[in-house]
Design a protein around this nucleic acid. Structure first.
Length: 810
DNA sequence: GAGTTTGAAACT
DNA sequence: CAGTTTCAAACTC
């Protein structure tokens, strides 16, 4: 294992430290001389982080508070789990050459090694950056029969799993990729030559930003330079690459000399939530270079400047990741294979090697909140392991989850608190194919059919986004034993959705990409890739473990009725309305059972929550019906659940309705018109009659002006009210001291109309009295003034008394 | 709040 | 694919 010093995050742009504890051999001769690459040897000790900001846990038993990091390595050695005292866990999983070797995971509670697999022990503590996840999947090792030298790591398509991603506090994505065969299409980036590569690594990097294309690679020393050179073309972003050579301490395959190249995206732009929505996760890139006798290793490097570095130490291997300065997070979870032999392993990455199921989650958070990761897994073969990865963040991290679809249903749940957007991407890594597979809907829909490909995810992959309210806390969902390995992604956000294994619905599979935003699809247990259940993540997150299990169970979605009610319950102490970043109007469906697109909730891929609907079936209690309805909708329209408003041809900023409207009477100037409702112009694809919703339309301009004026008025009124309230409050505050202090200021607030009239009456009376007594004018004026003085004194006295009474009574 | 209008979705 | 019906939201009063 490679160890990265805790300072890595802060140093990443500049350097990478290599701990001495790691039995890695430095390869100075091989280090690339490129200016972009920085190599350093880190001191033996890696500072331990006192805090565990982020954890990716793969252990079912892991409590929400536990923080874990999972690493899967392609090393030939058995995978081991390393955990530190803080509860941080390092998960190392490996897949056998067959690609079906069980994944082994360990939790802090259980240190049992992975069955049949051993991982290099970490000699040095591993410091993981907060909010960063490091996942290393072991690449299948080619048997000697293949003619390859023993210990040579051969990357199988299905087994390829490598995801190391991280975001610096600045949001700069960090990606570390293990050696991967250059021959693979994944190297389309220009990375390289895939010659004579015994081991392949697939690197999937997720970035919160659309343009993020982190390239990280752990390369054999010989190929290190190549990687560096190739990394440049890969990214639109500037990347700073840090490369260091390490020698694997223990490897059955023999000494491992590898270089770790860490590229850090220098360009921090585009970290907006929007960007994250568009292409957060990037792309899984395969930057692998095969090196004989060099087991691939994956290191996820998160960049963080956080003062709370997270350290993880393991006996076998150590990976130090510099603490994240910021909560920015990238989470990549890859599943190399199932671990039939270690079903009961505490930390089992839902690895379906054969299936190549992978889940990629990328999260970026602005906050420094530590990431909590809860993991769970199934132990029995009959029970599918469920992996839960939670990434916490207070800010509005961008979150994307990629869940591979495979015949072996593995569902990985990723929880990302604080993420405002939740993305779910379904990626299937199938065996056979060497070509990097994009997650594009059209190609990725049928994982079982698709040949195994290096997991490569790009923006084209199925993308589902759902606004998620930042969650302060992370909820951990414990997966219920399932027939197939399942990873569950949970978030504290109400918008997040999960697709749970359901009854086989082959028809849906082709349309996976069209599923409602935030939907997670998971193969139904035992049903291969045919069964899917669509489940809003909010339910999953809110569900108790038992409930969740029920959902995940192959038996169907017999969810306790309580679950539905839970959706209405406050989440994380926040009411649903509070937690919903995008308030959704409750539906009022009466006849559609909320299972048709008439229902906005259903159309948006959400469960009805706090709606006024009648006979609603859009809930967990009727998941089977819901699933069928979804299928029916997709059958009718494969893109039924895709956003209607997409980007126009002209550019990103040009939005347009995907289908166009068909308005006939509204002139497209009322909310009946979907275009107008979306505040976009009608386009050429619209079939509307008498359309007035075009740029030069005077009606539209007038309407817009009126709308703007109305809005301005509202704003002004609001501002006026606020100002008035403020003034009154300020006035009362200022007058109070004068009263209490007996100062000369009279609280005119007490001079009401009645008081003024009464005062005038007194003055008039005094004037009349003087007149009746034939007093000289001067005396009369004096008497009047004296009376006025008395009135004032009475007013002041009253005000003071009122103040006193108030202070006493109040 | 009831009734009407509207256009997307669903159906034929 | 076109015409019709259904449906729920938008709108009006």
């Amino acid at each position: 294992m490679d160890v990265v010093s805790p300072d890595l995050n802060s140093i990443l742009p500049d350097e990478i430290m290599d701990t001495e504890a790691i039995a890695m051999e430095e390869d100075p001769p091989n280090e690339p001389s490129s200016s972009s690459t920085l190599s350093e040897t880190e001191p033996a000790q890696v500072p331990m982080e006192t805090e565990v900001p982020e954890i990716v846990g793969l252990c079912p038993a892991t409590t929400p508070t536990q923080k874990t990091q999972a690493l899967t390595t392609s090393t030939t050695t058995d995978s081991t789990l390393c955990s530190n005292s803080s509860g941080t866990q390092l998960l190392v999983t490996s897949s056998s050459s067959s690609g079906l070797k069980p994944l082994t995971t360990s939790t802090t509670q259980s240190s049992s090694p992975v069955v049949g697999q051993t991982l290099p022990k970490l000699s040095a503590p591993i410091t993981l950056p907060a909010n960063h996840q490091l996942i290393l999947n072991k690449v299948a090792v080619s048997p000697a029969a293949d003619g390859k030298p023993p210990g040579t790591a051969v990357l199988k398509q299905e087994g390829q799993k490598l995801l190391v991603t991280g975001l610096s506090k600045t949001g700069q994505p960090l990606v570390l990729a293990l050696p991967h065969t250059w021959s693979k299409p994944a190297t389309s980036q220009g990375t390289g030559d895939g010659k004579a590569q015994t081991t392949q690594f697939k690197v999937v990097t997720a970035g919160a930003r659309t343009d993020l294309k982190p390239v990280i690679g752990v390369q054999a020393v010989s190929s290190a330079s190549q990687l560096l050179g190739s990394s440049t073309p890969l990214q639109a972003q500037q990347l700073k690459t840090v490369q260091f050579t390490k020698k694997t301490p223990v490897s059955t395959a023999g000494p491992m000399i590898t270089k770790l190249i860490i590229t850090k995206a220098l360009n921090n732009k585009g970290l907006t939530s929007q960007a994250a929505v568009q292409a957060p996760v990037v792309t899984g890139r395969v930057l692998s270079q095969t090196t004989p006798s060099t087991p691939p290793r994956s290191i996820a490097v998160g960049e963080s400047v956080s003062t709370v570095p997270q350290s993880i130490s393991s006996s076998s291997s150590k990976v130090a990741i510099s603490p994240l300065k910021s909560p920015s997070k990238l989470t990549v979870v890859s599943v190399a294979s199932q671990s039939p032999n270690s079903p009961q392993k505490p930390v089992a990455l839902p690895l379906n090697v054969a299936l190549g199921q992978q889940i990629l989650a990328v999260q970026q958070t602005s906050t420094t909140s530590p990431v909590k990761v809860g993991t769970s897994q199934s132990t029995a073969q009959a029970v599918k392991p469920v992996q839960t990865v939670a990434v916490g963040g207070v800010g509005q991290p961008q979150f994307k989850t990629i869940i591979p679809l495979a015949t072996q249903p593995n569902v990985q749940q990723i929880q990302v608190p604080g993420s405002r957007f939740h993305y779910v991407r379904l990626v299937t890594a199938t065996t056979g194919g060497n070509t990097p597979q994009t997650a594009s809907p059209s190609t990725n829909t049928n994982p079982a059919i698709q040949p195994a490909k290096p997991m490569m995810m790009n923006t084209a992959a199925v993308r589902m986004s759902v606004p998620i309210v930042p969650a302060q806390t992370v909820k951990q969902v414990v997966p219920k034993p399932m027939t197939s390995a399942t990873q569950v992604v949970t978030t504290s956000q109400t918008q997040q959705r999960l697709i749970m294994p359901a009854t086989p619905l082959p028809q849906i599979q082709p349309n996976l990409t069209n599923l409602p935003p935030g939907t997670v699809l998971a193969p139904a247990p035992g049903a291969g890739s045919m069964g899917y259940a669509v489940l809003p993540a909010q339910y999953v997150t809110q569900l108790p473990q038992s409930a969740f299990v029920t959902l995940a169970s192959s038996s169907g979605f017999s969810t306790p009725t309580s679950i539905q009610t839970q959706a209405r319950l406050p989440l994380n102490g926040l009411s649903a309305s509070d937690t919903t970043s995008r308030p959704r109007k409750p539906c009022n469906c009466t006849k559609s059972q909320c299972l048709k697109l008439y229902c906005d909730c259903f159309a948006n891929g959400e469960f009805c929550n706090n709606c006024n609907c009648v006979n609603c079936f859009n809930n967990l209690d009727h998941e089977s019906e819901r699933l069928k309805a979804i299928k029916a909708c997709l059958d009718r329209n494969p893109v039924a659940f895709k956003p209607k408003i997409g980007k126009g041809k002209e550019g990103e900023s040009d939005r347009r309705h995907s289908k166009g409207c068909n308005c006939k009477k509204s002139g497209c100037l009322k909310n009946y018109c979907e275009c107008y409702e979306a505040k976009i112009m009608c386009s050429s694809i619209c079939k509307c009659v008498g359309c007035k919703n075009f740029e030069e339309s005077p009606e539209r301009k007038t309407l817009m002006h009126l709308a703007d004026a109305a809005e301005v008025r509202v704003q002004q009124q609001t501002a006026a009210k606020t100002k008035l309230s403020s003034q009154i409050s300020d006035l009362l505050t200022r007058t109070t001291p004068a009263i209490t202090s007996g100062g000369g200021k009279l609280p005119y607030t007490f001079v009401t109309k009645e008081v003024a009239e009464a005062t005038c009456d007194c003055l008039l009376e005094q004037a009349e009295k003087a007149e009746l007594t034939n007093q000289p004018q001067a005396l009369a004026e004096r008497l009047i003034l004296e009376e006025f003085g008395r009135c004032l004194r009475r007013i002041i006295s009253f005000a003071s008394k009122a103040k006193t009474d108030c202070s006493i009574n109040c």
